[in-house]
């Protein structure tokens, strides 16, 4: 089970795959800011085109993306229905009892739907094209400015790296303990919430105790090899800024400018 997938990374060689993880991380977060800038249909068309270009250029089949949308489908539908019926004002099309469907309501529902789709697609682009370790490296770089306020960045990034390294190991261990419990007749897959959470307790305790032992062992091992954290440590994986990264940032800035322009055009 050691190859259990922790992320949803799909290996590939597209332009998005090859972008620097820092660029991908920062841009996909800034994308949320972009969405706030769109306040009319033209803005949403621009956003849609941008998202479409990003999705298509990952060269991953669209089915994978649609699978990402599926778990939140009921939430999207529910939200749209509520948004439709409880709309503030505007021209009334339909009215039964306290529910009214207005043109404002329909437009707002459409915008909320598009927001959902864009945000989820963009974050899926990030996770599908970036391996988890690269994401952790990117996070570490993003924390660097915090050094100025005496924030323990190096210690936190050591923790992030160790955490990511041990996710698969601990996952194996969890599965092992679960199987051991199953062999003794514990049922994890059915029953009420209370029954299920009770069944989980005997799994957690060995995991915690095992982690304490592992922390002691790993700490001693690092100590014995003369580990020293801080400023001058070199890295095995070095992130390099390439020209395509600059291009990606420039494209993003262009979209930003166009979006701001759409606010004034209409």
């Amino acid at each position: 089970m050691s190859n259990m997938i922790i992320g949803r990374y799909v290996p590939g060689n597209s332009i998005i795959h090859r972008l620097d993880p820092r660029v991908k991380l920062i841009l996909s977060i800034s994308f949320i800011v972009l969405i706030f800038l769109a306040n009319n249909w033209l803005g949403y068309v621009v956003l849609g085109l941008f998202t479409l270009v990003a999705v298509v250029s990952t060269k991953i089949s669209l089915a994978v993306y649609l699978r990402g949308l599926k778990p939140v489908l009921w939430l999207i539908i529910f939200t749209i229905i509520l948004q439709l019926f409880f709309s503030p004002a505007g021209h009334v099309y339909l009215a039964f009892g306290p529910f009214t469907v207005t043109d404002m309501g329909i437009i707002n529902a459409c915008y909320v739907f598009l927001r959902f789709v864009f945000i989820i697609l963009m974050s899926t682009v990030l996770t599908l094209t970036t391996p988890p370790l690269a994401l952790a490296d990117a996070l570490e770089y993003m924390m660097k400015p915090l050094l100025k306020i005496k924030f323990p960045v190096y210690e936190l990034s050591l923790m992030l790296a160790i955490a990511l390294r041990f996710v698969p190991t601990l996952m194996d261990e969890t599965v092992k303990v679960m199987n051991a419990q199953r062999a003794r007749g514990v049922d994890f897959a059915s029953g009420s919430i209370i029954k299920r959470s009770k069944a989980i307790v005997p799994i957690l305790i060995p995991l915690f105790v095992g982690s304490i032992q592992r922390a002691i062992d790993l700490g001693d091992a690092m100590e014995a090899r003369g580990y020293q954290g801080g400023e001058n440590r070199t890295k095995f994986r070095v992130l390099k800024w390439q020209r395509r990264d600059t291009v990606a940032v420039l494209i993003f800035v262009c979209v930003l400018v166009v979006l701001i322009a759409t606010r004034f055009i209409i």
């Binding site: 050591l158 160790i162 955490a163 996710v167 190991t169 969890t174 919430i193 982690s211 592992r214 922390a215």
Partner: peptide, 25 residues
């Protein structure tokens, strides 16, 4: 150092518990 590593392992365990146990409501 041991405390740091234990903290890191707890982060990993948070992720594992978040991914392995999904109980439908």
């Amino acid at each position: 150092l041991r405390q740091l590593i234990f903290g890191a392992l707890m982060m990993a365990l948070t992720v594992v518990l978040g991914r392995v146990f999904n109980i439908p409501i």
